[in-house]
Amino acid sequence: MREQLEKIKLEALEEIKEATNSQRIDEIRVKYLGKKGSLTTILRGMGSLSPEERPIIGKLANEVREFIEEEINNALSNIKNKERELKIKGEYIDITMPGKKVEIGGIHPLNKVLDEIKDIFFGMGFSIAEGPEVELDYYNFEALNVPKNHPARDEQDTFYISENLVLRTQTSPIQVRTMEKTKPPIRIIAPGRVYRSDAVDATHSPIFYQIEGLVVDKGITMANLKGTLETFAKRFFGEKTRTKFRPHHFPFTEPSAEMDVSCFVCGGEGCRVCKGSGWIEILGCGMVHPDVLTKGGIDPEEYSGFAFGMGLDRIVMIKYGIDDIRLLYENDIRFLKQF
C-alpha cells in the first residue's frame, strides 16, 4: 500500500506537470482526489490494515493528499496567471481612438464673459438688478439729467416707441429704478440689452450689451470708486493690469471719469489692439450726480454713491480677438463652437 501511495504521488506529479490548462487540472483533481479518485479508493481500503499500520499509512496517505493538493493549487495558480496574461495580451486596444462623447453645447460668448464678470462682482457684494428694455423716456434720459433737446440725446441715437417710450439706449435707467425700490446700502450691477439706431457694420450693432453698476451708501468716495473698479480690472484682466482714470463728462455723474486698462494683449507695450497706446478704454464712471440721487428718493446730503457702465460686446471682442461685432448676433454654429 505504501508503494501504491508512492506511485500515485509520482503519477499525479507527472500529470500535473504536463497539464497546460485549468480544465485538465480539474480532471486531475477528480482523478486522484475526487469521490472515486484513486487516493480516495486507497483510503477506503484502510479498514483492511492492521491497527499498527493504520496510523502510519493514514499519515502517509494524508501527506500524499496534501502534497497533491498543493501541487494542484500551485499548478492551477500558475496556469491561471498564464491564462490571465494571455487574455490581457489579447485585449490590447488602440487607446488613441476617439472617446465616446455626449456632445456638449456651449454658452454664447457674450453670456460667458458676462457670467465671469457677474462672479467677480458677486465676490464684492454686488447683486444683479434688472429693468425693462422698452423704457420710459423719464428713466432713460430725464432722470439722468438729460432733458429733451439736450445735445447728449444726439450722441445716442434713440429708437422711439412713442413720445414717452424708448428702447433704452443705456442700462443707466436702472440706477433710478433701483434707488426708488431699494434703501441704501445699494450695491448692484445691471447687465442687459441696449439699443441705438446705428447702422450695422463691423464695429456697430443696433443692439448690444451694457453692464451698469451702482453703489450708494453713506460716505462713498471717489477713492472707493477707484478701488472697486481697479479690483474688478485686476480680477478680470489679470493681476498685472494697471488702470488709468481720465476725467470725462456724463450728465448723470459728477465728477465723471473714463477708465482705461493696460492693454491685456501686449501688456502695455503698444499693439494693434490698443492702437499702439498701450491702453484700452473699458468703461465710463463717476460719482452719482446729486440730482439723480434726489430723483431716486435718496438724500444727497446724507448719501453719496458711484456708478459705472461698460460695453460688454467690446470687451468680448477684444478678449477673444473677434474683429466683427456681427458675428455675435449671427450665431453661426461654427462660431459658437469656439467658446
Partner: peptide, 22 residues
Amino acid sequence: ARLYGYDKIPTEKIKGEAVEAA
C-alpha cells in the same frame, strides 16, 4: 479732483456694512 490728478486719488475698498449678494 481733475487738476489734482485722478491718478493721485488713492484707491480704497468700500467700507460699511456688508450687503447681501445673491
